[in-house]
């Protein structure tokens, strides 16, 4: 339908939209290599701000916290999410209520879950810290893992499972030797997605990490720094974080595609 469109106008639209999308982040990346550190003047190429980053104790401890949260929540979410996906797909009857519960963590706005969890933990008098951030991150992470694994299961040949059972394999053996190996690319892709989401997640962590400085995650640290203005160090940190997310998600997509024949 759009084939009749004026090519010059179409090119102008694309150029304008891509400029809008890419100029701000490109400026950020460029400035992180600016020796003088000021956005108003280019004084030469330098990686010194990246060095400064690694000497900054606050940033390093926040990065370590983020790593802990992301690893633990990813492991739990990958386990639970995969089992959930298999369980849901085995069931013949599709319950609307069940679908809603599984789908909800992906569409509930972060702020809602963040507030709900904050009041939940506070009312139970749970001391908040990294552990409460982990508990919270598993909620949305498991939903994302589940949806990635379920997509793979749509093309799964269940007769293989029946054959395995007929030949006397137990449920656990069938899972371990047949279902899990076939699903592995999707499980890894889902896990990678969960890990990235957890590393990037700010609002829920901000609300459920408690007041102590010791449980600050990297996005919380970035938020605090940004509020005090622009520094060349944040430019470097932002560039690294951005590069990480894009590479990890591209990898996740690629793995997932490899596992899906015909896509």
């Amino acid at each position: 339908m759009a084939s009749q469109a004026n090519p010059r106008l179409m090119f102008a639209i694309l150029a304008a939209v891509f400029a809008f999308l890419y100029v701000p982040i490109s400026v950020l990346v460029a400035l992180s290599f600016n020796d003088g550190g000021l956005p108003t003047a280019w004084t030469g190429f330098s990686v010194k701000w990246y060095g400064a980053l690694f000497r900054n104790g606050d940033i390093m401890s926040a990065a370590l916290n983020t790593l802990i949260v992301a690893i633990v929540s990813t492991v739990l979410a990958t386990l639970f999410g995969t089992l959930l996906a298999i369980g849901v797909e085995i069931r013949r009857r599709k319950g609307r209520f069940l679908e809603t519960i599984i789908f909800a963590p992906m569409i509930i706005p972060d702020i809602v879950l963040a507030i709900a969890l904050l009041s939940f933990f506070s009312l139970l008098n749970v001391t908040m810290g990294l552990h409460t951030v982990i508990l919270s991150h598993v909620v949305f992470n498991l939903a994302f893992v589940c949806s990635v694994v379920r997509a793979r299961l749509k093309t799964f040949d269940w007769s293989v499972v029946e054959a395995s059972a007929d030949l006397g394999a137990s449920t656990v053996t069938t899972l371990r030797r047949i279902v899990i190996p076939v699903l592995l690319p999707a499980i890894v892709a889902g896990g990678l997605l969960a890990f990235t989401l957890s590393v990037d997640e700010f609002i829920i962590a901000f609300f459920t990490a408690g007041a102590g400085r010791s449980s600050i995650t990297l996005p919380m640290q970035i938020f605090a720094m940004i509020r005090f203005g622009v520094t060349p160090e944040i430019n470097a940190l932002a560039t690294l974080i951005m590069a990480f997310s894009v590479v990890a998600l591209a990898l996740s997509q690629r793995l997932n595609r490899g596992g899906l024949p015909g896509q």
Binding site: I25, L31, P39, D200, P219, I222, G229, V230
Partner: peptide
Amino acid sequence: PFWSNYLVRTYAWIVLLNREGL
């Protein structure tokens, strides 16, 4: 760009718009 960190994308606009910005 949607895949990169939300805070970072927002921060990019501070870099552009602030008084000593681009």
